[in-house]
Design a protein around this nucleic acid. Structure first.
Lengths: 188, 188
DNA sequence: CACGAACCGGAGCCCCTCTCCGCACCTTAT
DNA sequence: ATAAGGTGCGGAGAGGGGCTCCGGTTCGTG
């Protein structure tokens, strides 16, 4: 994976700047942010952008890779601090809030994480999936989560809740509320 | 609202064809379907399309108006046939399945139905909102729905569930399952 | 310092959106 | 039926974004 030969200094510089600018642009304008505009804001030509990142998706993935790994790592932190059920709930909240705050993140994680037989199963999708898997299994052992749900179902529903919360425009408030409704059910 | 003078025959013909073709295109390609392509498939110039429907949103709304009214009417049918709780559940299922089948419908209903202080509160959004309101109130009277949810919350969550189900690519199966999880809650 | 390779960047092509206006067709009155 | 008028048609074209290609520049190395 790592280049056999280290990147040239100017190439590396441009690569880093593109990632930084892209993360901002995708957070602000969502998946559809203008790529030429990202290149311009990073001070490079569009050719440079497309050489480093052949597709829009490649750029999106690279721009959010660190945050996705942080999310996956956060799962283990929470698992160590809280009982399994609460750890899962809190993790889903942080995941959902992140997807509302960084709009491109939801566009990226949606397909990457929730499609089962995906031909383009991305590495970042896998790490989130396995993190979710650990929390889900633990909560099921503990008896605070139904046994008939798979990790992928939980991730899809988190995605849906984050979509619902964004419709309400609200920041964290609605996410928390809708996650509670999902957890407890709509019945009294 | 109705034209004081009836539309010219050719205008009316083009208008109808555009609606028909647009509904197909939006169902297939989602909100972002190519407008020039719709015009071409309807056998008219793009100027004609933009005169009848100044914005993409206007066309989307007009294309699905009849279906939205059918959905609203269906609420009363179900309310007459089933106990309130079941009527709400079945209605949400049909609504969600419709949004998966006709992808443009979700893009239209999302903002129209779920934004509270919307400045562009559309007429079709209102009819769905009031239909949901009747079902929700009835179910709360009956005691099968939490009293701390508003109709708009239920609609947003239905939207989210439909998004979640589409990620699973499945047709009706996943919608039904995820609605059940939402109703009963994730706890055992 | 000089050479070759790696990398840059923007000109250019294609597709989509949306506007504008000369022309064709429909309606209505005679 | 026919002519007058005005309504509606349609496609050319401007504007903008996505993506490619290749001449020129910059970097690393002997």
């Amino acid at each position: 994976m790592a280049q056999v030969r280290p990147m040239r200094a100017d190439a590396r510089r441009n690569y880093e700047r593109l990632l930084k600018v892209a993360a901002e642009a995708f957070a602000e304008h969502g998946e559809g942010a203008s790529l030429d505009d990202i290149a311009k804001r990073a001070g490079v030509g569009s050719g440079t952008l497309y050489r480093h990142f052949p597709t829009r998706h490649a750029l999106l993935e690279a721009a959010y890779l660190d945050r996705i790994e942080a999310i996956a790592a956060r799962a283990d932190e929470l698992a160590a601090e809280l009982p399994p059920g609460e750890a899962l709930g809190e993790w889903l909240y942080e995941l959902g809030a992140g997807m509302v705050r960084m709009r491109g993140l939801r566009a990226l994680l949606g397909p990457a994480v929730t499609q089962t037989g995906s031909t383009v199963a991305t590495a970042c999708g896998d790490s989130v999936k396995s993190a979710a898997g650990r929390l889900v299994r633990a909560a099921q052992e503990e008896g605070t989560l139904r046994r008939d749900v798979e990790p992928v179902d939980v991730l899809r529903l988190a995605h849906g809740v984050s979509t619902a919360a964004e419709l309400a425009d609200g920041e964290g408030e609605h996410i928390r509320r809708y996650l509670t409704l999902l957890t407890e059910g709509l019945r009294p």
